[in-house]
């Protein structure tokens, strides 16, 4: 049954690279932040596939969760700046 893990890892890898490209070349800053959060969340599933549940939970709670929240808080503060490209 563990044969499903290899295609799953490939799928996740492709999704992460796609999301990372959106993160650095997206249309707007909020989209870039959302995509970075998605990269981290998918990375946590990949960590689980690599048999590291501890790291997966840390990445989900801290690496993805808190980082994204901090980003959006700061973005909410600097809103109104016309130079968001």
């Amino acid at each position: 049954m563990s044969t499903i893990m290899l295609p799953m890892a490939l799928l996740l890898a492709a999704a992460m690279i796609g999301a990372a490209l959106v993160a650095i070349r997206g249309d707007s800053v909020p989209i870039a932040m959302l995509a970075a959060g998605l990269v981290s969340l998918l990375a946590s599933v990949l960590f689980l596939l690599l048999a590291a549940p501890d790291v997966a939970m840390t990445e989900a709670a801290i690496g993805s969760g808190l980082t994204t929240f901090l980003f959006f808080f700061v973005l909410g503060r600097v809103r109104g700046d016309s130079k968001h490209d």
């Binding site: 969340l41 946590s44 689980l48 549940p53 997966a56 989900a60 709670a61 993805s64």
Partner: peptide
């Protein structure tokens, strides 16, 4: 591993 799913759903 199911604990991770719980935290993931929350996040």
């Amino acid at each position: 591993y199911l604990d991770v799913a719980l935290v993931y759903a929350l996040l």
